[in-house]
């Protein structure tokens, strides 16, 4: 069973909705909040933070991985997303970036096909 929650896209202001599950709400009840990824009708990717009642605490626009074979997962902390995104878009020119991508894959932050 899923419950639709409504939100306004932080990028374009369009009204949109996302699906929550009992599992997600249970997770939010345990940890205080849970995150769910959604997409607005105009295609912007949005990361929603919801509480145990399904109320939206925050809606942040996120960039999607440009490399089609790799995806940043929900496990990746917000602090890492922007940098991982840049690495996936531009490649691992720097050693530090290559190491980060390798560790991120091992941690399940990034999945590559």
């Amino acid at each position: 069973m899923s419950l639709a929650i409504k939100f306004r896209c932080p990028a374009c202001g369009a009204d949109a909705s996302a699906a929550t599950t009992p599992e997600l709400l249970r997770q939010a009840a345990e940890k205080g909040a849970a995150r769910v990824a959604a997409r607005c009708p105009r295609g912007h990717a949005v990361l929603l933070t919801v509480d145990q009642y399904g109320h939206i605490r925050s809606a942040i626009q996120v960039q999607e991985a440009a490399r089609p074979d790799c995806e940043i997962t929900d496990k990746a902390p917000l602090a890492a997303r922007q940098r991982l995104q840049a690495i996936l878009e531009k490649g691992t020119a720097a050693d530090a970036d290559a190491l980060l991508l390798e560790k991120a894959k091992a941690a399940g932050w990034v999945i590559c096909i």
């Binding site: 602090a79 890492a80 980060l100 560790k103 091992a106 941690a107 399940g108 932050w109």
Partner: peptide, 10 residues
């Protein structure tokens, strides 16, 4: 441990 290693590198 895997996440700690990734966070350390970050």
């Amino acid at each position: 441990d895997e996440e700690a290693a990734a966070l350390y590198q970050l």
